[in-house]
Design a protein around this nucleic acid. Structure first.
Lengths: 153, 153
DNA sequence: AGCGACTACATCGCGCACGATTTAATCGCG
DNA sequence: CGCGATTAAATCGTGCGCGATGTAGTCGCT
């Protein structure tokens, strides 16, 4: 974008651009399956770890209810999953896969390799990158929370 | 999120989460100014480099017309900029700052430092991170373009 | 000059993100 | 037990992101 910005603002722009570019790769792969990237993340959780409450998905994917609620509704409408109120706590909703939802997993078999190829970085670089991103996200999230509670500077 | 995914898919998730966390920091900073992060990026370009055509903004911010067109319309509606058809090429639209748009720059003086603090990484790490992200984005964009033109595997 | 290809931009539709608000169920504490 | 506080989830509104489509304006080629 630029050359005279402070380093951290340039980084943020690169992060923003990189994230969108990765999503666009997922789009190419997932569109034939009728899934978006966030939807794929939900399906991944269910395939790997079985039934989850909406709250667990919120925590694990770091998305909000207001993003997940309609997203789950769409996945349910497509017949991939079912939402069921918990009998022991009527506030909670358990999300569970249908047979069709389970069957879809097979069609995603080649996704990880395709992503790995598209990224084109070797594992050592990826590991470093990942650690830096996690630190960054953790710092930023904490900072944002703190800043918005403190009205004053 | 997980521990048994291939490394590159985990990285993508971290990238996605990190990008949103950074945006949330910008939100805290920019909301009092009535700007979103993408809007701030446009204003940055205009503050630093002066008048731009829509096409130049598309290229420099790597956003599409269908994202920028309504965004610029909103900024124009707020009186921060003006859109003007070029006389020499009636297809092009030049975007230029109003006095109010120029005046807004001063209120963003503390943003870079606040971002730097929120990120909480030292410059060496940031530089590495940035290079990896640029390589990744460049690879991914090329790959996505290639994959979608090739219908066959 | 004429016409097809290309370009710059706009518009539409859909699915996120996310702040704000609402509803219903459960918990905690006197 | 009763009632205020908390929690889980849903809904609404706004602004991206982006595929698909539409519309002028310009270029290239004969």
């Amino acid at each position: 974008m630029d050359s005279e910005s402070p380093l951290s603002e340039l980084l943020c722009f690169d992060l923003y651009a990189a994230s969108r570019s990765v999503t666009s790769v997922y789009r190419v792969l997932l569109d034939p399956l009728g899934l978006t990237y966030p939807q794929y993340l939900v399906m991944l959780m269910l395939w790997r770890h079985g039934d989850r409450t909406v709250r667990e998905l919120v925590d694990e994917l770091r998305l909000d209810y207001n993003t997940l609620s309609p997203l789950l509704k769409r996945l349910e409408a497509r017949g991939l999953l079912e939402r069921r109120r918990r009998p022991d706590d009527e506030r909670s909703v358990t999300v569970l896969l249908t047979d069709e939802g389970r069957a879809l997993q097979e069609k995603t078999r080649d996704v990880p390799k395709a992503i790995s190829d598209a990224i084109g970085l070797d594992d050592a670089v990826i590991a470093d990158l990942q650690e830096a991103l996690r630190t960054l996200a953790s710092n930023a999230t904490a900072h944002a929370a703190h800043m918005s509670t403190n009205t004053a500077k």
